[in-house]
């Protein structure tokens, strides 16, 4: 067996909070960590734990923060968490947009206006039509998510619509163009869009197929490669079960690196097929404004 390349943590720039664990109101067929209303293999993070980690992250010089799940808005403390963290750095919430409440958006808009930092939302919708989206994300999920997008726009947010590519890459332009038009019709005047590659683990491995054995990062591939293109070179994710290397790999026991941020600052062996996708596409989980540029 050939040697496995490792990625060092060069700099802890982004801290992710897995605030709702694997709990989600939807059960998307391509979910890389198989989230569902009943999957509680990871649970909610408490506000206290987030505050404790926030304190530790300041000492480490973390640049910005991401909230993910499951569906983060299922955590009843999400709004106060965002209110606190936004005092310290930029926050991005990754949501499916289907459970938003007006009162929450009112509060979030207020804290957004009083903070120097950006509050971003990324809303997952897997195509510009219910016909494309709903078979993957569930019945009526397109309509509900678009209502969420409209509501965010009412509160002057500009959500980044994030699509997982379940089509041929060559069709990106056409699909993005179509989606821009649909979003404008829903009152979103200057839509922002992001396409993600599929991660062939979790539910997605059941839906289509998992990674082939050859889809792994080899030591040769690391030669001359800008390692900052890998999320694990500059991020960690906090879950209720400890600190993991990245939000994608939490189902892999080897991805748990410790209990504290300090403990998690170790090299990570790039053994997973998902590491190969991260290598191919580069920092797929980052916002466009924070994407690491190739050296």
């Amino acid at each position: 067996m050939s040697a496995v390349p490792v990625a060092p943590l060069a700099s802890l720039d982004e801290l992710w909070f897995q605030v709702s664990g694997t709990l989600c109101n939807l059960k998307c067929e391509h979910c890389f960590i198989s989230c569902s209303p009943t999957n509680d293999s990871f649970g909610y993070l408490s506000l206290d734990r987030v505050m404790q980690l926030l304190e530790e992250s300041i000492a480490q010089g973390v640049k910005e923060y991401y909230f993910t799940g499951g569906e983060p808005f299922l955590n009843r403390d999400l709004v106060p968490m965002v209110e606190q963290v936004l005092q310290v750095g930029a926050v991005t919430v990754l949501t499916n947009g289907t459970v938003l409440k007006t009162d929450w958006l009112k509060r979030l808009r207020a804290v957004d206006q009083s903070s120097r930092y950006s509050l971003e939302f990324r809303v997952s919708i897997d195509g510009p039509t219910p016909e494309m989206n709903d078979p993957i994300r569930g019945e009526r999920s397109f309509e509900r998510a678009m209502q969420g997008v409209s509501l965010m726009c009412e509160y002057n947010f500009l959500p980044i619509i994030t699509m997982t590519r379940t089509w041929d890459e060559a069709d990106d332009e056409q699909i993005l163009g179509q989606f821009r038009e649909v979003l404008k019709q829903h009152g979103y005047a200057r839509p922002r869009l992001k396409v993600l590659p599929r991660l062939k683990i979790g539910a997605e491995a059941q839906r289509t197929a998992g990674y082939n054995q050859f889809e792994r990062i080899t030591p040769q591939m690391m030669e001359g490669f800008d390692v900052s293109q890998l999320l694990c070179n500059h991020s960690r994710v906090a879950t209720d079960k400890g600190i993991y290397v990245c939000p994608i790999l939490i189902d892999s026991p080897a991805a748990r690196l410790g209990e504290t941020l300090q403990e998690s600052q170790v090299d990570f062996p790039l053994v997973d097929g998902a590491c190969y996708t991260c290598y191919q596409y580069g920092s797929i989980c980052a916002n466009p404004s924070s994407k690491k540029m190739e050296a």
Binding site: S57, G61, V62, A90, Y117, S118, N287, S289
Partner: peptide, 11 residues
């Protein structure tokens, strides 16, 4: 890119 609104003071 170091944007004002996404770069923390701690960083």
């Amino acid at each position: 890119f170091l944007w004002e609104s996404t770069t923390s003071t701690a960083f």
